[in-house]
Every structure is written in structure tokens, then in C-alpha cells.
């Protein structure tokens, strides 16, 4: 699914901090101060510019409350992957350019004094692609959430799988999904924020498995990237293809929240998710209402397991 990395981010404008840039939404000339003072949102038209992971943490976490989890994990190069450049080179460059250790940062934080576990992706780090470290950090963040029983908030931004880790990157979808299932059993409130762009393997795993899926206005969110689809169906895509608003129309997200309100709304959602009353119920089938002589499917399965355990081929094998 890494072919879905091909996301056109140029139309969204860069996030260069040196000098003014024109807003892709309204063509107004914006100074860096205009943007950073307004959560990287255009004050004129509300266009949401891309945010780095650090800016995102600043936006969402109470000042001084962030403490990183699994920060000591780094990508390896198990396939000795080599295209036009070796993978370690690309990693080094991404680290240098973003000042991050990987495409996802995980940590503990407080949001309006509420304790949370947070995972934040950065599209600037190799397109926010999911490799082994992103998968493992997600797992550890989920584990921390289960240990502490704090809710998990994940801010997604990803072009898909990390091609340079080949099949290992694909399997991170399975790995993160297993972590989500463990949280569901617990249960731990789990909310994702889909930011521009969230595509490919991230979209087809934890991003869409949250209890509540929040999207940022104008964020592209899809499994297959626009270019791949255009090449396949040989048609031009509609202007609003895959955007948060279009996904809302098709029932794929719970709510769209402008960035300036994001923190308060997330805290509100998490609070509501935690506000249930206990109603643990014994499974109804354990009550003695079953007609005598009829054994249930699980009992039958157990009988079969017992029978198999005693089967002749087992003793002959041992």
C-alpha cells in the first residue's frame, strides 16, 4: 500500500518558517507569525496547514506535561534496502530535517489536567510512513494506556507503509490492530485524529479502529492515494475526493473538529467515554435455562478437543 504515499502535499503549502507564504486556500500572504500564533491555521480562510509532531504536542498537551515513552527505539535496516539511496541515509536525513527520532512520537501527557497517553505522527519524517518503530511505539503506547488505564489519543498523519522495511512494514497493520483489540477488551477509550494526509496502511489499521474518529477540516483520508486511483480508473477525481468533509458525508468519520477547538473537544469526548456505569453481565448461557441433554457449541468444541487429545495419532506421534 506504499504506493499510496504519492500524496500531493504541495497544494497544501509547506510549513517553512522562513518568510511569508501564500495560503493555498485564499491566496493571502501569511507571515510565519500569523500561522504559528494561530495553530498553523490561516486566520483568513481557516485553511489548516500541516503541523509537525512537536507543534501538535504543544497544541494538545498541557505545558510541561509531556514525557516520552519508547523514545529510545530507532529503525534498523533488516532488508538492507537499497533503491537510489540506502535506507539508513534516508533515515539520517529525516532525523536531521525533522529533529525527530521517527515518524511517531509516543508519551504521557495531560490535556486540561486529564491524564492521557498520546501518539503523534509527523508527515515530515519519511511521509509519516509506518515501519517497525511506529508499530512498536504504538504497541507500547497502548500497553501504557492499559497499565495506567489512561485513554489513548493518536494523531495520525501518514502516507502509508514504510516501503524500505518491505513486508515488515505491512505487518505493522496487524500488530497495531492486535494492540487495538487488547485495548477494546480492557476497555480503554481510544480516539484518533485524522490529519492531512492519513492514507494507506495507517488508514487501514488503527486510524479507523478508534472508538471515536475525529478528522481535521480539509484533511485527505483514504486507503488508496488519489494518483493510484486515477491511474486505475483513468479518470480525473472530483475536487473533494477523500477529504474529511466528503468522508463525513459517506459516514466514515464521527466528527470534524477545527484545530483551534481540537484540544477541548478531545477532552470532552474522552470524559464522556469514561463516564459510563459498570454493567458487567455474566454470560446468559451460564444460567441453567438450557434444555437438558443439549450441549452448546463451546461444550461440543471442548469435547472435540478432548477427543483429539486422546486420538490414536497423538499417542503414536509421542
Amino acid at each position: 500500500m506504499a504506493q499510496k504515499v504519492s500524496v500531493d502535499i504541495s497544494r497544501r503549502g509547506g510549513n517553512s518558517l522562513d518568510g511569508a507564504q501564500s495560503c493555498p486556500g485564499c491566496k493571502e500572504l501569511l507571515s510565519p507569525g500569523d500561522l504559528s500564533g494561530n495553530s498553523m491555521v490561516c486566520p483568513h480562510c481557516g485553511h489548516h496547514f500541516r503541523m509537525t509532531a512537536r507543534q501538535r504536542i504543544e497544541l494538545l498537551a498541557d505545558p510541561g506535561s509531556w514525557s516520552e515513552i519508547a523514545g529510545n527505539l530507532r529503525s534498523a535496516d533488516p532488508l538492507e534496502f537499497f533503491d537510489l539511496r540506502p535506507y539508513p541515509d534516508r533515515l539520517e536525513e529525516a532525523e536531521y530535517e525533522t529533529g525527530l527520532s521517527e515518524a511517531m512520537l509516543t508519551g504521557r501527557a495531560r490535556m486540561n489536567k486529564m491524564d492521557v497517553i498520546m501518539a503523534v505522527m509527523d508527515f515530515g519524517f519519511m511521509g509519516g510512513s509506518m515501519g517497525s518503530v511506529v508499530g512498536e511505539r504504538f504497541w507500547r503506547a497502548a500497553a501504557e494506556a492499559m497499565d495506567t488505564r489512561f485513554p489513548l489519543v493518536v494523531v495520525c498523519a501518514s502516507g502509508g507503509a514504510r516501503m524500505q522495511e518491505g513486508i515488515l512494514s505491512l505487518l505493522q497493520m496487524a500488530k497495531t490492530t492486535c494492540a487495538v483489540e487488547l485495548m477494546a477488551e480492557a476497555p480503554i477509550p481510544f480516539v484518533t485524529v485524522l490529519t492531512h494526509p492519513t492514507t494507506g496502511g495507517v488508514m487501514a489499521s488503527f486510524a479507523t479502529l478508534a472508538d471515536v474518529i475525529v478528522a481535521e477540516p480539509g484533511a485527505l483520508m483514504c486507503f488508496s492515494g488519489p494518483r493510484v486511483i486515477e491511474q486505475t480508473i483513468k479518470e480525473k477525481l472530483p475536487e473533494d475526493f477523500g477529504l474529511a468533509e466528503s468522508n463525513m458525508d459517506h459516514g466514515q468519520v464521527d466528527l470534524i473538529v477545527p484545530r483551534t477547538e481540537l484540544k477541548d473537544r478531545l477532552v470532552q469526548i474522552l470524559g464522556l467515554l469514561e463516564g459510563g456505569v459498570a454493567c458487567a453481565l455474566q454470560p446468559l448461557w451460564e444460567e441453567k435455562t438450557r434444555p437438558a441433554g443439549r450441549r452448546g457449541a463451546f461444550a461440543q468444541a471442548f469435547d472435540r478437543i478432548k477427543a483429539l487429545a486422546n486420538a490414536p495419532w497423538r499417542s503414536s506421534q509421542r
Partner: peptide, 12 residues
């Protein structure tokens, strides 16, 4: 990879 497939939530 198609528009309708995306609209019906391929990723999800």
C-alpha cells in the same frame, strides 16, 4: 483502488 470503494470505507 476506486472512488466508490473509498466512499464505502475501504480502509475501515
Amino acid at each position: 483502488p476506486g472512488i466508490a470503494a473509498e466512499e464505502r470505507g475501504q480502509g475501515s
